[in-house]
Nucleic acid binder design. Structure first.
Lengths: 338, 338
DNA sequence: ACAAGATACGGTATCGCTAACGTAGTTTGC
DNA sequence: GCAAACTACGTTAGCGATACCGTATCTTGT
């Protein structure tokens, strides 16, 4: 097998302990011995067995991430930047996907915890808080990402979705739209809060939230385009039809725009669209999509930093990090200047 | 801390070994005892400590995946479907990203191996084979994905990129294009093979590979759009300018099309495009993009299955799994019927 | 000159689990 | 009726590292 501390120790005529200490930069070791050991360690390309170290020290140097769908650009980007932060601090990342299924999610959480992760990040798809029994009573610090549970005393890193919904809707109002619809997301905090923001923006401008202009999206996020397409088809049957649509996310918006174009409408003249998430491709779509940017990369970094903090000091009280969304205006909501 | 085997054993008045055996379904245990143990295990919501199990058994039940960029839809989808296969067999996934940097890649490979993964999947960004010293001489089985090293005796799962390049180019030829350019990818097997396929298709039709129609892409893949944009700008300066472009991948194609549109050209009438990878958004672009589909999800499954095989039987010789690409025709290469 | 502290190193006992035998007690074959 | 085989369970030794404490040697202050 691989080289072990014991081998190096014997070779160098010192004890295993001394090698271990040199490796970890302990203070009670002479400069000379340390160098001698480190030199040999480098030559042999030795790497400590992290399983053994984890078992002995109680620290695995691994963080667990449970997301509903890796393919979704939001989670992919989040995972990427989280990973970047962790790598710099010598933490590994163990990844699990729940496929938007609360049952799978619970299993995954259990197995990830059994692997002894030092912290757990979860974008949960539990609609009931109960799913979190078993995470709470672990010692392992955990952080909710993107999707919050207001009544759970836990750390959270995510977007101010209420403001996101409000900004999007206000933007449509400012563009002179009067009949603004919303294709909503699943009943988790982002969907709920964006919807609240949408409603609040309308109310603030003394408008009633129009009946029938609100499409509840029962499907999972994964089928974003299909849900958006179906939602828009429904909206197109309304009389009068909406002249602006705020969509739960960009995938939904893409599907919705597709339906509008197929119905012979012109975007944004007949109907304007705003999405959320500002995915990389928004700029290159048939009609470039206005969207709410969530600074996804930054969210990943924040979550990583917070995880590192919590691992250093487990007693720290839960923290909430909520980033402000930013509106990115493109052709789908504003007639391009000519 | 958590419940341990020892606790359950004491509680039930049996030995720790008996509990361990019941848990793992060993044969030398009575049906009665097994049930009694399993019942208690379920009640206590016990999960074995995987670090300890890994250390003792030499099997961690974890697979490592090293990719150049998680954000790239290809790798995101690959990781997703791989994860699906692994989950069904109770394997975890530890993820590392090299950010297209050979040095980081080597570090990540080392740390992942140090974590005792049972198998390692790598989409390598090493241009020199040397980067693979240290992986080879490990006992851990490993599989190259997407990017192959022809001279390395290793398992590989990926696309037939030569055929991909050939199919794309032939499709352009069949559409009556006569001046076909190629914006190439990095000098790794997919880029090299797609280029070879492109050349072979031209030669087969008795055409010379036109000088100046081949754009070498020195940048990393991540900057796909920018590279495509820059590449196309260069192609637009050629006289005569190309009437068809095969782009290394879809992101490159998106950037290239952007440049063409900005130059006032009409797609596909003035110039046709074919990409590769068939990303989810190809259908919704300004001009829907013809592309070579790589069955990415299936690749992930194949890689997962192969990894499981290799872990079961380490002595098995390296296997090559090469899936056939499939052409998906959209507006960017064919004038839509009216 | 000698107790007290600092310095550098090592021994022992885990961490939670599994592998590989051991060993009672029961069944079986002829 | 007794060795051989089978059944069900237990004992012992690790896996490769760390934590915690012990100890020999060297400084130091007064």
């Amino acid at each position: 097998m691989a080289v072990r501390l014991k081998d190096i120790a014997r070779e160098l005529g010192v004890s295993l302990i001394t090698v271990s200490k040199a490796l970890r930069g302990a203070s009670d070791i002479s400069e000379k011995t340390r160098e001698r050991v480190l030199k040999r360690i480098a030559e042999l390309n030795y790497r400590p067995n992290m399983l053994a170290r984890g078992l002995a020290s109680g620290k695995s140097n691994i963080v667990g991430l449970v997301v509903p769908d890796l393919l979704h650009p939001f989670f992919a980007e989040f995972a990427k930047s989280l990973n970047g932060v962790l790598r710099k601090h010598n933490y590994g990342l163990i990844l699990a996907s729940s496929e938007e299924d609360p049952v799978i999610e619970q299993q995954e959480i259990r197995t990830v915890l059994a692997r002894g992760v030092d912290a757990l990040l979860i974008a949960s798809c539990q609609t009931a808080l109960r799913g979190f029994y078993g995470v709470e009573d672990q010692r392992t610090p955990f952080i909710l990402i993107d999707r919050n549970f207001p009544h759970l005393r836990a750390s959270f890193v995510g977007t101010d979705d209420y403001r996101a919904g409000m900004m999007a809707t206000k933007h449509l109002l400012a563009g002179g739209r009067r009949r603004i619809a919303h294709i909503a997301g699943p009943e988790l905090s982002p969907g709920i809060d964006r919807l609240r923001g949408y409603k609040a923006a309308l109310v603030e401008q003394q408008r009633r939230v129009p009946r029938g202009y609100l499409i509840a999206n029962s499907r999972v996020e994964e089928a974003g385009e299909a849900a958006g397409y179906a939602g828009m088809r429904e909206l197109l049957r309304r009389k009068p039809r909406p002249d602006g649509v705020f969509c739960y996310n960009d995938l939904t918006a893409i599907g919705a725009m597709q339906a509008a174009v197929e119905a012979g409408l012109s975007i944004p003249d007949d109907v304007a669209f705003v999405g959320c998430g500002n995915i990389r491709y928004s700029d290159f779509l048939r009609i470039p999509l206005s969207s709410i940017d969530q600074s996804t990369g930054q969210l990943g970094e924040c979550a990583g930093d917070l995880a590192l903090e919590l691992m250093r000091d487990g007693g720290r009280p839960p923290q909430h990090i909520v980033l402000d969304p930013r509106l990115v205006i493109r052709d789908s909501s504003v007639t391009p200047k000519r």
